[in-house]
Amino acid sequence: MTTYIPSLTLPSIVFEQPAAAILLPVVAGTAVGFSTRPSETQKTYLELRQPPLRPPPWIFGPMWTALYGLMGYAAYRAHSTGMSSLDPTKVALTKQGATLYTIQLALNLIWMPLFFGYQRPIEATIDIVALTGLTGYLTYVWGQVDEVAGYCLVPYLGWLSFATYLSAGCGYLNNWDFSGKEKPKSTKGGSTKYVDEKAE
Protein backbone atom coordinates (compact mmCIF):
# COMPACT_ATOMS: atom_id res chain seq x y z
CA MET A 1 0.00 0.00 0.00
CA THR A 2 1.80 3.14 1.23
CA THR A 3 5.53 3.19 1.87
CA TYR A 4 7.56 5.66 3.90
CA ILE A 5 7.26 9.12 2.32
CA PRO A 6 9.27 11.73 4.26
CA SER A 7 7.41 14.67 2.73
CA LEU A 8 4.10 13.22 3.95
CA THR A 9 5.32 12.26 7.41
CA LEU A 10 5.39 14.22 10.64
CA PRO A 11 8.88 15.04 11.99
CA SER A 12 10.54 12.28 14.01
CA ILE A 13 10.52 14.42 17.16
CA VAL A 14 6.72 14.14 17.27
CA PHE A 15 7.03 10.37 17.60
CA GLU A 16 10.10 10.34 19.85
CA GLN A 17 8.69 12.44 22.68
CA PRO A 18 5.68 10.88 24.48
CA ALA A 19 4.21 14.24 25.47
CA ALA A 20 4.45 15.55 21.90
CA ALA A 21 3.07 12.34 20.44
CA ILE A 22 0.05 12.35 22.74
CA LEU A 23 -0.65 16.09 22.80
CA LEU A 24 -0.41 16.68 19.04
CA PRO A 25 -3.61 14.82 18.06
CA VAL A 26 -5.42 15.98 21.22
CA VAL A 27 -4.59 19.65 20.63
CA ALA A 28 -5.15 19.46 16.86
CA GLY A 29 -8.49 17.71 17.30
CA THR A 30 -9.60 20.20 19.94
CA ALA A 31 -8.58 23.14 17.76
CA VAL A 32 -10.55 21.81 14.80
CA GLY A 33 -13.54 21.17 17.06
CA PHE A 34 -13.56 24.75 18.35
CA SER A 35 -12.91 26.21 14.90
CA THR A 36 -16.19 24.70 13.70
CA ARG A 37 -18.07 26.41 16.55
CA PRO A 38 -19.29 23.69 18.96
CA SER A 39 -22.69 25.28 19.57
CA GLU A 40 -23.44 25.44 15.86
CA THR A 41 -22.10 21.93 15.32
CA GLN A 42 -24.30 20.55 18.09
CA LYS A 43 -27.30 22.40 16.72
CA THR A 44 -26.75 21.00 13.24
CA TYR A 45 -26.22 17.52 14.67
CA LEU A 46 -29.56 17.64 16.48
CA GLU A 47 -31.41 19.10 13.49
CA LEU A 48 -30.48 16.44 10.97
CA ARG A 49 -32.19 13.11 10.59
CA GLN A 50 -29.97 10.49 12.19
CA PRO A 51 -29.76 6.70 11.95
CA PRO A 52 -30.56 4.49 14.96
CA LEU A 53 -28.08 4.41 17.87
CA ARG A 54 -27.16 8.08 17.51
CA PRO A 55 -25.11 9.03 20.60
CA PRO A 56 -25.90 12.20 22.59
CA PRO A 57 -23.76 15.17 21.51
CA TRP A 58 -21.92 15.44 24.86
CA ILE A 59 -20.21 12.08 24.39
CA PHE A 60 -18.09 13.13 21.41
CA GLY A 61 -15.73 15.48 23.27
CA PRO A 62 -14.59 13.03 25.96
CA MET A 63 -14.57 10.11 23.53
CA TRP A 64 -12.38 11.84 20.96
CA THR A 65 -10.02 13.17 23.63
CA ALA A 66 -9.44 9.64 24.89
CA LEU A 67 -9.06 8.23 21.39
CA TYR A 68 -6.63 10.95 20.33
CA GLY A 69 -4.57 10.25 23.44
CA LEU A 70 -4.48 6.51 22.68
CA MET A 71 -3.61 7.26 19.08
CA GLY A 72 -0.70 9.44 20.15
CA TYR A 73 0.55 6.88 22.64
CA ALA A 74 0.41 4.19 19.93
CA ALA A 75 2.53 6.43 17.70
CA TYR A 76 5.12 6.93 20.42
CA ARG A 77 5.14 3.27 21.39
CA ALA A 78 5.48 1.96 17.82
CA HIS A 79 8.20 4.46 16.95
CA SER A 80 10.29 3.92 20.08
CA THR A 81 10.04 0.13 19.77
CA GLY A 82 10.52 -0.07 16.02
CA MET A 83 13.34 2.41 15.56
CA SER A 84 15.40 0.79 18.32
CA SER A 85 14.97 -2.66 16.80
CA LEU A 86 17.84 -4.50 15.11
CA ASP A 87 15.33 -6.04 12.70
CA PRO A 88 15.38 -4.02 9.44
CA THR A 89 11.84 -5.20 8.65
CA LYS A 90 10.51 -3.67 11.88
CA VAL A 91 12.35 -0.43 11.18
CA ALA A 92 10.83 -0.28 7.69
CA LEU A 93 7.34 -1.01 9.07
CA THR A 94 7.79 1.69 11.71
CA LYS A 95 8.64 4.29 9.07
CA GLN A 96 5.79 3.13 6.84
CA GLY A 97 3.44 3.40 9.81
CA ALA A 98 4.63 6.95 10.49
CA THR A 99 3.55 7.98 6.99
CA LEU A 100 0.22 6.17 7.34
CA TYR A 101 -0.31 7.78 10.74
CA THR A 102 0.29 11.27 9.35
CA ILE A 103 -2.13 10.74 6.46
CA GLN A 104 -4.85 9.29 8.68
CA LEU A 105 -4.49 12.18 11.12
CA ALA A 106 -5.00 14.65 8.27
CA LEU A 107 -8.07 12.72 7.06
CA ASN A 108 -9.39 12.69 10.62
CA LEU A 109 -8.99 16.45 11.07
CA ILE A 110 -10.75 17.40 7.81
CA TRP A 111 -13.86 15.31 8.46
CA MET A 112 -15.55 17.76 10.83
CA PRO A 113 -15.08 20.83 8.59
CA LEU A 114 -16.37 18.81 5.62
CA PHE A 115 -19.41 17.46 7.46
CA PHE A 116 -20.43 20.42 9.61
CA GLY A 117 -18.55 23.44 8.24
CA TYR A 118 -19.08 22.97 4.51
CA GLN A 119 -22.05 20.61 4.92
CA ARG A 120 -20.68 18.17 2.36
CA PRO A 121 -21.91 14.75 3.53
CA ILE A 122 -20.77 12.88 0.42
CA GLU A 123 -17.19 14.13 0.66
CA ALA A 124 -17.20 13.65 4.45
CA THR A 125 -18.36 10.05 4.09
CA ILE A 126 -15.74 9.31 1.43
CA ASP A 127 -13.16 10.83 3.78
CA ILE A 128 -14.17 8.71 6.77
CA VAL A 129 -14.35 5.51 4.72
CA ALA A 130 -10.79 6.16 3.53
CA LEU A 131 -9.76 7.07 7.10
CA THR A 132 -11.21 3.84 8.53
CA GLY A 133 -9.51 1.68 5.90
CA LEU A 134 -6.19 3.44 6.37
CA THR A 135 -6.42 3.12 10.15
CA GLY A 136 -7.16 -0.57 9.82
CA TYR A 137 -4.01 -1.00 7.76
CA LEU A 138 -2.01 1.14 10.20
CA THR A 139 -3.22 -1.05 13.07
CA TYR A 140 -1.96 -4.10 11.19
CA VAL A 141 1.40 -2.48 10.32
CA TRP A 142 2.18 -1.12 13.78
CA GLY A 143 0.80 -4.28 15.40
CA GLN A 144 3.69 -6.13 13.74
CA VAL A 145 6.14 -3.69 15.30
CA ASP A 146 4.63 -3.59 18.78
CA GLU A 147 1.49 -5.43 19.92
CA VAL A 148 0.61 -2.76 22.48
CA ALA A 149 0.69 -0.06 19.80
CA GLY A 150 -1.64 -2.15 17.66
CA TYR A 151 -4.04 -2.76 20.55
CA CYS A 152 -4.09 0.97 21.36
CA LEU A 153 -5.50 1.65 17.90
CA VAL A 154 -8.30 -0.93 18.18
CA PRO A 155 -10.76 1.33 20.11
CA TYR A 156 -10.06 4.12 17.61
CA LEU A 157 -10.72 1.76 14.71
CA GLY A 158 -13.94 0.56 16.34
CA TRP A 159 -15.18 4.11 16.89
CA LEU A 160 -14.29 5.06 13.31
CA SER A 161 -16.36 2.13 12.04
CA PHE A 162 -19.32 3.38 14.08
CA ALA A 163 -18.72 6.97 12.95
CA THR A 164 -18.68 5.78 9.32
CA TYR A 165 -22.11 4.25 9.88
CA LEU A 166 -23.37 7.52 11.41
CA SER A 167 -21.89 9.66 8.63
CA ALA A 168 -23.26 7.51 5.81
CA GLY A 169 -26.59 6.99 7.57
CA CYS A 170 -27.04 10.70 8.21
CA GLY A 171 -26.14 11.53 4.63
CA TYR A 172 -28.56 8.95 3.26
CA LEU A 173 -31.46 9.95 5.53
CA ASN A 174 -31.00 13.60 4.55
CA ASN A 175 -30.72 12.85 0.82
CA TRP A 176 -27.01 13.78 0.90
CA ASP A 177 -27.98 17.44 1.11
CA PHE A 178 -27.92 19.20 4.46
CA SER A 179 -28.80 22.64 3.13
CA GLY A 180 -32.27 21.54 2.03
CA LYS A 181 -33.10 20.24 5.50
CA GLU A 182 -33.00 23.64 7.20
CA LYS A 183 -36.02 25.89 6.96
CA PRO A 184 -36.34 29.42 8.37
CA LYS A 185 -38.59 30.05 11.34
CA SER A 186 -39.27 33.51 12.69
CA THR A 187 -38.95 34.21 16.40
CA LYS A 188 -38.97 37.34 18.53
CA GLY A 189 -35.19 37.30 18.78
CA GLY A 190 -34.70 37.00 15.03
CA SER A 191 -34.57 33.91 12.91
CA THR A 192 -33.37 30.45 13.59
CA LYS A 193 -33.25 27.21 11.66
CA TYR A 194 -34.91 23.91 12.27
CA VAL A 195 -35.80 20.71 10.47
CA ASP A 196 -39.45 20.11 9.72
CA GLU A 197 -39.35 16.32 9.85
CA LYS A 198 -43.16 16.00 9.58
CA ALA A 199 -42.99 17.62 6.16
CA GLU A 200 -40.51 15.07 4.90
Rank of each mutant, 00 (worst) to 15 (best):
L107I: 02
E40S: 13
P6R: 06
R49L: 10
L173T: 04
L153Y: 08
G69W: 01
G29N: 10
L160R: 04
T9M: 05
P88S: 07
S179G: 02
V195K: 07
A21W: 02
E40Q: 12
S179P: 00
L131I: 06
L173P: 02
F116A: 04
K43R: 13
Y194P: 02
T2Y: 13
L109C: 07
Q96R: 15
N175K: 15
W176C: 10
T164W: 01
L46N: 15
L93A: 10
E182Q: 14
A106H: 01
G143T: 11
Q104D: 06
V141D: 01
V195S: 13
Y137W: 14
R37E: 07
L153N: 14
V91R: 14
G150R: 08
A106M: 09
F162V: 14
V27A: 14
L166W: 05
I128V: 15
Q50L: 08
V26D: 04
P56K: 09
P11E: 15
Y118E: 03
T3H: 11
K95C: 02
P56E: 04
G180M: 08
P52V: 08
S39Q: 12
F162N: 03
Q42C: 02
V91G: 02
G61Y: 06
G190P: 01
T99G: 06
Y76H: 15
A199E: 10
Y156A: 08
S179V: 11
Q119P: 01
T139S: 14
M1D: 12
G150Y: 10
P121N: 09
Q42T: 04
G69M: 09
Y101S: 10
K193G: 04
I13H: 10
I128S: 04
K90E: 12
L166T: 03
V129W: 05
P62L: 10
G33K: 02
W159S: 08
T65K: 02
T102E: 05
F60D: 07
P57E: 05
Y45T: 09
Y118S: 09
T139V: 09
G169D: 12
L23W: 06
P18Q: 03
A78R: 00
V154D: 01
E123S: 10
A98D: 03
D196R: 06
V129M: 11
M112P: 00
P113I: 05
V14E: 00
L138I: 11
S7H: 04
K43M: 04
F115W: 09
I103G: 00
S12K: 14
L153A: 13
P57I: 03
A28V: 05
T125I: 03
F115Y: 12
K95R: 15
R120F: 07
S161T: 15
G180E: 14
G158S: 12
V27P: 03
R77S: 15
G158E: 09
S161L: 14
Q96M: 11
V32T: 13
L114W: 01
V14K: 00
M63K: 04
P155V: 08
A66C: 10
G190F: 08
V91H: 06
L48E: 01
R120D: 01
S39A: 13
I5C: 00
K185D: 03
L107A: 11
V145H: 06
F34W: 14
G61E: 03
F178H: 02
L100W: 07
